[in-house]
Design a protein around this nucleic acid. Sequence first.
DNA 1: AAATTGCATAGACAAAAATCTATATTAACA
DNA 2: TGTTAATATAGATTTTTGTCTATGCAATTT
Lengths: 314, 314
Amino acid sequence: MRSRIHAHVGTMRQLEILLAVHDQGSINEAAKSLFLTQPTVSIQMKKLSDAIGGPLYQFVNRKLVFTDIGLELVKTSVEVLDSFARLDVALGSLRKFKPSTLRLAVVTTSKYFIPHLLGPFCEEFPDVEIQLNIGNREKTIERMKQGVDDFYVFSHPPQDIEAQSLEFLDNPLVAIAHEDHPLGKQKSINLADLCEQPFLMREKGSGTRFAIEALFQKHNLKPKVKMTIESNEAIKHAVMSKLGITIISAHTLTYGGQNGLVRLPVKELPIDSHWFFLWLSAKRPTLIASAFLKHIKTNGRELLQNELDKSAAN
Amino acid sequence: MRSRIHAHVGTMRQLEILLAVHDQGSINEAAKSLFLTQPTVSIQMKKLSDAIGGPLYQFVNRKLVFTDIGLELVKTSVEVLDSFARLDVALGSLRKFKPSTLRLAVVTTSKYFIPHLLGPFCEEFPDVEIQLNIGNREKTIERMKQGVDDFYVFSHPPQDIEAQSLEFLDNPLVAIAHEDHPLGKQKSINLADLCEQPFLMREKGSGTRFAIEALFQKHNLKPKVKMTIESNEAIKHAVMSKLGITIISAHTLTYGGQNGLVRLPVKELPIDSHWFFLWLSAKRPTLIASAFLKHIKTNGRELLQNELDKSAAN
DNA sequence: AAATTGCATAGACAAAAATCTATATTAACA
DNA sequence: TGTTAATATAGATTTTTGTCTATGCAATTT
């Protein structure tokens, strides 16, 4: 029961012309205001009249007066053109919204260096708004499944989501202890030596834990896990409190401070790990997302490597 | 500040196709439901996309998913097509309404014979609804100036309105008196004899008064107006009450009864008057109005003349 | 009566729209 | 690996749309 009248009544141009005639009350004046010749307008009105099956106007004392049919068509024309005007406004809002917001979801550890990436990018694109979501790996994977962000940052990317990735930074995992710790005084340590100490472990599901467990398994060793802690900061403070030792991202030390902590010279370390930028294969990047990706590819690795080098010199 | 987006975004056909794709969630299925080939639909979607300046859809896990831009355009398409659907309904109502209503505005006196005209016409067109407006001449002229009716009936048409007319019936004006009136016993009377009797006059502006005044003026006579009365019925009852004599349309006697009244055999009477159908030159007659006019031309005069002849025999 | 004004119609031309057949590309499935 | 299904692209053809110049017609004005 869907009407098909639109298929034969009125192109957009004809509706426009109709409104001009209605507004001006004259074929000639309408033609002038549309920068057309009078016959053009006359013909278009005739076509509309033929299509709709009745006269759109008549002359009363030489004055052009719209018929009821004509007035109905004027009403429809106004509605239709208003619909398009609203579309224009809506599109304007979308354009304004989309290219100005960059959405990132990153695992907690990367919060130390991501701002160093964003800084120069925001200088280049001062109007861009950044939405940065920091969460543990589990939460970040959940967000990625929903596809609501432009990029995701992991050290151990999920394997069950179709995504493209860019490896952009090393993420070495090192062992640390309190500066007064006995192992801290040795020049060279074996991984086996760590297994005799209370070990503070990151939570299940975290990328760091994956890497640690893999390493110990590879050497048929098993750490004496004393505690499982979900936060890098908390782990660091536990070590400071002489509760045990741990293996942790070097970035945590680089960026987060290392008061009273020493890095242990373990022969099997650091664990060779990396940071990855990921985005959904199935989602087309926005313009600003593409620009950011290009920025990372061009400058990102160099930028962050300089930062790490600076910290190593301290 | 009127948006011009409609000039380059979306012909009706394209909007239709967009909605089919949105409904079916597939280019191929949309093509099938519109009895088109797949490339046609693909191309039209591409044209829309190019016109609007962004992608309308993307593929997520091989599933066609509309973008925000696409969804806005879907919304607009629905609005636009709904507008045309409403136009279809409105036009249907107009078609239903217009040909079934015949509008007449008539001066009071003609109310006696107009139904005799309408009767046979309504038999021929049983679905036609008649809107009959009866009023004095002044009110009927006012309506005519507004042009809201199909026809107007006068015995003395207004001269200041551009109209076409059809003279369709004689309207003889005759003198009447109470049956006991002295003049009623005479075989032949002069117009001057009427001037010695109290005269009951119709109201200013009435066609009957025009004719009466013209006749007396023509003979340099002046009636002794005792009373001015606005209604034919009232005048007749005044005469029955022996308040005076009058000159009145013969139709009033023919159709309205004449108990206790006699027609006076005045040499200068009856006044030669006519009934006219008028319609505005500037207004195009509806189909039903044209049919009624044809009916009047064909049968009207004969119909009414027969009625008058029948009364005269009584 | 001639001039002016406003609209309608005829004929022509260019551009745009609508649609098809043929083919290429890609991803998923057997 | 080959097949199938779905979409995109290329090229061609027909139809429709939009617009113009030229002219006709009717009513009003000068």
